[in-house]
């Protein structure tokens, strides 16, 4: 987000994501403009599109909506509801993508079109959570925890620990899949089967950039097989898996310990207690949102790219309105 200029803020994905396709910019700008509706159920648009990749937001609108977000995120019941709704949007997206995948595989064009339309509509709602990267009231949370825990440093440690996702982050999750596949090969599973599984479940995540215009390396099962062959032969996937699991258990325990500390410290002051519960849920929601959004974004972009190939469209020119028009999503 650029600083205020003439009473206006600018969100410039053209600069922050210069290699993006039109669809990628569209996903960001459309979901940005819609975040008040998706997250707060407030119909006010967050700004207007200047051109693909750039959104201008009037400062009064920004200030009002950010204040509304802060208030919203201080209510534990509303935050839990938000987390539930976000999870539902993710499930709807994943379900539509699975159906589109199946339809593409079956060469059922009509079903693929319809599922991609629905998937686009659902995924735009998932994408609205990307505002957690710069609109969360982190300073206010740290101030509150500083008061509760009587220490700025402990407040920061607590805030950071609370921003641990409930489900394993996508980087470790992808690596765990790889290690499990390598271990399964050592146990006799056929390499091709393990490679196909890794390719389908995590192939879009490996490599630089995004799968919007070109496939990521491990989308190719043969490349995944090469990697698994090396990994199963040279590494000790079982002990690495054990180490990974131990680390994840430990980070969850650290998170829970800090949450308990903050709740114990706030105990006896109902307002602070509610605010601590709310921010604890909100931080986990934000971390989960980021991790799950990345997995879904890559799956979605890969699927749309392959759909474009099947339908003889240019994957670098397709837009969200094009895709929403395919289904009931518009």
């Amino acid at each position: 987000m650029e600083p205020v200029w003439n009473g206006m803020l600018t969100c410039d994905y053209e600069r922050s994501r210069p290699a993006s396709t039109l669809l990628e910019w569209d996903l960001y700008t459309t979901s940005l403009i819609a975040w008040p509706r998706v997250l707060l159920e407030d119909p006010t648009p967050y700004g207007r599109l200047r051109r693909p990749g750039i959104v201008d937001i009037d400062e009064p609108v920004h200030l009002r909506l950010v204040a509304a977000l802060e208030k919203f995120l201080s209510d534990p019941d509303r935050v839990r509801d938000l987390a539930d709704r976000t999870a539902l949007h993710r499930e709807q997206t994943a379900s539509a993508l699975d159906q589109a995948e199946q339809a593409l595989s079956d060469r059922d064009v009509k079903a693929a079109d319809e599922a991609i339309g629905r998937g686009t509509a659902a995924f735009l709602k998932v994408m609205s959570a990307h505002i957690v990267n710069w609109l969360l009231p982190e300073q206010q949370w740290e101030d509150l925890l500083s008061q509760v825990l009587s220490s700025r440093a402990r407040a920061r440690d607590c805030t950071l620990a609370l921003a641990t996702p409930n489900r394993t982050g996508h980087l470790l999750q992808a690596h765990r899949l790889l290690l499990e596949a390598a271990a399964s090969i050592r146990d006799g599973r056929p390499l091709a089967l393990a490679a196909a599984d890794v390719s389908a479940r995590a192939g879009t995540l490996y490599g630089a950039g995004s799968p919007a215009a070109a496939a990521m390396p491990l989308e190719d099962p043969d490349r995944a097989a090469d990697l698994l062959r090396t990994l199963s032969a040279s590494a000790d996937p079982e002990s690495e898996l054990a180490s990974l699991t131990g680390s994840l258990d430990r980070s969850a325990a650290v998170r829970e310990a800090w949450e308990t500390a903050a709740l114990l410290a706030a105990g006896g002051r109902p307002g602070q207690l509610a605010a601590v519960r709310a921010l604890s849920t909100a931080l986990a929601w934000a971390a989960d949102s980021e991790e799950r959004r990345k997995e879904l974004r890559h799956s979605y972009l890969s699927l749309v790219r392959r759909w474009c190939t099947a339908r003889e469209h240019d994957a670098t020119r397709v837009t969200t309105p094009d895709l929403l028009a395919l289904g009931d999503g518009r």
């Binding site: 957690v132 990267n133 982190e138 805030t159 950071l160 921003a163 641990t164 996702p165 982050g169 996508h170 980087l171 470790l172 934000a286 971390a287 980021e290 991790e291 990345k294």
Partner: peptide, 8 residues
């Protein structure tokens, strides 16, 4: 603080 690097 919510980047993928921070989370891992």
């Amino acid at each position: 603080p919510l980047s993928h690097t921070a989370i891992i």
